[in-house]
Nucleic acid binder design. Structure first.
Length: 585
RNA sequence: CGGGGCGUAGCGCAGUCCGGUAGCGCGCACGGUUCGGGUCCGUGAGGUCGGCGGUUCAAAUCCGCCCGCCCCGACCA
């Protein structure tokens, strides 16, 4: 491709909307342009990079038996009503009516369509196991798109769906994906770790997220360097420090004027925060049929910990949680700032599993200006649910080996879910087993967003000048710079390379050397060739790796051979970076 | 949805406080110049000042409503 023909220009200044490095560079280098919040066009450079990424995905999916298909972007709402997700998913789902006023859905994922295909196509155990996938557009109307391609509303995703006769089969395909995903990320040069994660709206029994660790990420992870435990904070377990057992003391009411926070209260009463109970009030939404029922949730953790809303939602089996309003809190007989589960009504009381082992805590008196000492779960109030609902934090102790854990931010670049029969039951995906007995198809679903992956790679591989892409993802193999006075020689080198199958971006513009070098650095193709009068005197050209400062001078008649060698080096270096990550981490 | 910021030429910005009919840099076009790290000189094209309404002799500037974009939080695969 000649740059005089390339449909994009580079930008000298950082566009004001970009403040994430990958976003800035992808814009400035002319890879992407934004149409609206979270909606992008992918220009030729990005399109080529994405095609490389998607071809890697195809190879790895095909290698574990995947068959590529394409499913629709527009779905009739009926199938989403069958699985209840029409009712369960909120504003994130794109909905509209067609010309006959039928409810329609913009695809946010494809479990429903897969299940519909399966119930029509799969009837016998002889057809299982099966793995299908596609690479297709998704629409998720995220309330807050951000950071360029990291978090968008319209995006392309490779999503695959495993179909099995039983849980053993699912486990096998799940493990195959686990490894295939590492292969994909490694081939793109992206370091990732797998963490256990919440199943969220997908449902199912087990899920892993593949996380690229970067401060730009918006998920928080708990990592144990000692044993390798890794989990999204949403579900991370941790060892809770148990209190010394002591005799239960009688409740004692104390005046605590204007002490409405745990901090103030602990200081005022001169007790550690761990000797207080923190109350949080949420309204849980519970799907019942096609309706959602609201219930008041009174959640209690020890004062030195925080509530984990994901754990809480899972513990009570709510589809959504929202903070309760002051009116709702008062309606159950609690007083904000001075609330306790003693003497309240019409609330689901959920206590953290540490609370029953923490005797004689300070809790609210449900009376303005007063707290109670020596409140004990089981004696003074009954818990409806006892569960782990506290959030792990920096320094929390590892649930596996008890060492201190650290936190890190990460971008979720892929996820895998064991769905089980959650969709096949709702949509009637059955087959006959060897005994002629009807069984439900066991499903798994697995996704990688290609744009987010490209953005993560851009985030990882860059310097002050621009991108430094891994060769496997780079839109072209080499960036050929022809300087003034060397037009004939660079034209010849260009056509020789193209003829030999090398993918070349050829800067044939009438620009000054500085402009051409600056643009080459910005675009980030890992190998740059320069032909100029200077090199031509010796019948040579210059070859320079984007990640190295020194260039080598090579005879023109050895061009093809040398370029192939260096390209191979670039490929090998990525492959060398591959590390096996055990499934049971 | 809550908090904050911004919206003036393709991009980056000044002008807004204090009303008088729009400017700078880059980019773009043309001419010349230079040629190994965003050359230099000249000429030129390009703007409903996000939109609607109001105040005023007069609005980019003041007031109201709305829209859009970005950041933080809530939320989210």
């Amino acid at each position: 491709m000649r740059m005089t023909n390339l449909f994009s220009v580079t930008l000298r200044d950082r566009p004001s909307e970009a403040d994430t490095p990958s976003h800035e560079l992808l814009l400035r280098a002319g890879y992407i342009r934004q149409l609206a919040a979270g909606i992008f066009s992918y220009l030729p450079l990005a399109k080529r990079a994405l095609t490389k990424i998607e071809d890697i995905m195809r190879e790895e999916m095909n290698a574990i038996g995947g068959q590529e298909i394409t499913m629709p972007v527009v779905h009739p709402a009926d199938i989403w009503k069958e699985t209840k997700r029409w009712y369960q998913v909120g504003s994130e789902m794109g909905r509209f009516q067609d010309k006959s006023d039928r409810d329609m859905v913009l695809a946010m994922t494809h479990e429903e369509v897969v299940a519909d295909l399966v119930r029509k196509e799969v009837h016998s155990y002889r057809q299982l196991p099966m793995l299908i996938y596609h690479i297709q557009t998704k629409w998720r109307d995220d309330p807050r798109p951000r950071a360029g391609l990291i978090r968008v509303r319209e995006f392309t995703m490779k999503d695959s769906y495993s179909l099995d006769a039983d849980l053993e089969g699912l486990d096998k395909q799940y493990r195959a994906h686990y490894q295939a995903y590492f292969n994909i990320f490694h081939r793109c040069g992206l370091p990732v770790i797998a963490v256990k994660s919440d199943v969220g709206m997908m449902g199912g029994s087990l899920a892993h997220e593949f996380m690229y660790l970067t401060p730009v990420g918006e998920d928080t992870l708990l990592l144990c360097d000692a044993c390798g435990y890794a989990a999204n904070r949403q579900i991370a377990r941790f060892l809770k420090p148990k209190a010394e057992p002591e005799k239960l003391k009688a409740i004692e009411k104390v005046a605590t004027p204007e002490m409405t926070t745990i901090e103030d209260l602990a200081t005022f009463l001169e007790v550690p925060k761990s000797r207080t109970a923190k109350a949080v009030f949420m309204i849980g939404l519970f799907p019942e049929g096609t309706e959602k029922v609201e219930k008041f949730i009174f959640a209690i953790v020890r004062g030195d910990m925080d509530i984990n809303e994901t754990k809480l939602a899972n513990a009570v089996k709510a589809s959504e949680l929202r903070p309760a309003t002051n009116e709702e809190i008062k309606a159950v007989g609690a007083v904000p700032g001075y609330a306790s589960p003693v003497s309240i009504k019409d609330a689901m009381v959920v206590v953290d599993d540490l609370i029953p082992d923490s005797p004689n805590l300070v809790a609210g008196a449900n009376e303005e200006g007063f707290h109670l000492r020596n409140v004990n779960a089981g004696r003074d109030y009954e818990a409806d649910i006892i569960a782990d609902i506290a959030t792990a934090d920096e320094g929390s102790h590892c649930p596996e080996c008890s060492e201190s854990m650290r936190t890190s931010r990460g971008v979720e670049v892929g996820n895998i879910f064991k769905l089980g029969t959650r969709y096949s039951v709702d949509m009637g995906c059955t087959f006959l087993d060897q005994d002629g007995k009807e069984q439900h198809v066991v499903m798994g679903s697995y996704g990688i967003g290609s744009g987010r992956l490209l953005a993560s790679v851009a985030e990882q591989y860059r310097d002050e000048q621009g991108l430094i892409l891994p060769i496997s993802v780079s839109p072209y193999d080499v960036h050929l710079v022809g300087l003034k006075g060397a037009e004939d020689a660079s034209e010849k080198l260009y056509s020789d390379l193209v003829e030999a199958g090398v993918e070349v971006l050829f800067d044939d513009r009438a620009e000054s050397p500085g402009v051409k070098f600056a643009d080459a650095d910005l675009i980030g193709i890992p190998l740059r060739l320069t032909v100029s009068n200077r090199t031509l005197k010796e019948g040579s050209f210059e070859i320079k790796r984007r990640d190295q400062s020194e260039a080598a001078v090579v005879k023109l008649d050895a061009a093809l051979e040398t370029v192939r060698e260096v390209l191979q080096d670039l490929i090998d270096e990525i492959v060398e970076g591959v590390i096996e990550v055990p499934y049971d981490n």
